[in-house]
C-alpha cells in the first residue's frame, strides 16, 4: 500500500506492506537508524518517537496507522541536521551525562520531549512517572532525571524544533 508520512519535516511517499511496523519504516525504508528496537514488546521504550506530536512506541504502531501523519525521530530534533544547534533536551543529556551505552537514549530523549510538551515544568516525581515507559539498563536513571529537569528550564524544550542558543 502507499503511505504519505512527514518524517522530520520532509514529506515522503512510500510503498510498504500493511504489516510493516513504524520502527522498521523509519529504520529500513527512511534509513533513519537512530530509533532502536529493544524489547519489541511495547515495554522498553527504546523505539519511542513522536507521532502527531505525542510519544508512541513505534514497535507497536503500523506504518499504515501513521499514514497521513507526522513523525519526529531523534535525528529530527533541534537544528543539527541543517547545521544548527542541538535541541535543549539533547544538550541537557550531554550536560548531565544522561547516558552510558546510549542504546536507550534516542527513545529516552523523545519521551522526554513528549513529556515536556505536555508538562513544561514537571516535578522530579512527574519526570519519574512520565518516563515510566522507558528503561535504561546502564545509568540508574539519576542523570537522566537531572537532564530532564535541566532541559525543563528552557521554556520551549517540549517543541521538537527548539535549539539551544549558540
Amino acid at each position: 500500500m502507499q503511505v504519505q508520512i512527514t518524517v522530520n519535516k520532509k514529506p515522503r511517499t512510500d510503498e510498504v506492506e500493511p504489516r510493516q511496523l513504524l520502527v522498521h519504516y523509519l529504520r529500513d525504508t527512511a534509513g533513519l537508524k537512530a530509533t532502536n528496537v529493544g524489547c519489541d514488546t511495547t515495554s522498553c521504550g527504546a523505539c519511542t518517537v513522536l507521532l502527531d506530536g505525542v510519544s508512541v512506541k513505534s514497535c507497536t504502531v503500523l506504518t499504515a496507522q501513521a499514514d497521513g501523519g507526522t513523525v519526529v525521530t531523534v535525528e529530527g530534533l533541534g537544528g543539527t541536521a541543517d547545521g544548527g544547534q542541538m535541541h535543549p533536551v539533547q544538550s541537557a543529556f550531554r550536560e548531565e551525562h544522561g547516558l552510558q551505552c546510549g542504546f536507550c537514549t534516542p527513545g529516552m530523549v523523545m519521551a522526554s520531549v513528549g513529556l515536556l510538551s505536555e508538562n513544561p515544568n514537571p516535578t522530579e516525581h512527574e519526570v519519574r512517572e512520565g518516563l515510566e515507559g522507558n528503561y535504561c539498563r546502564c545509568t540508574g536513571y539519576h542523570n537522566i532525571l537531572r537532564a530532564v529537569l535541566l532541559a525543563a528550564q528552557s521554556p520551549d524544550a517540549g517543541k521538537p524544533e527548539a535549539q539551544v542558543s549558540a
Binding site: 511495547t42 521504550g45 519511542t48 505525542v54 510519544s55 508512541v56 512506541k57 507497536t60 504502531v61 519521551a111 513528549g114 513529556l115 512520565g130 515510566e132 515507559g133 522507558n134
Partner: peptide, 9 residues
C-alpha cells in the same frame, strides 16, 4: 494504565 506512550495509543 501502562505508561504515557501506551495511554496515547
Amino acid at each position: 494504565i501502562g505508561d504515557p506512550q501506551i495511554r496515547h495509543r
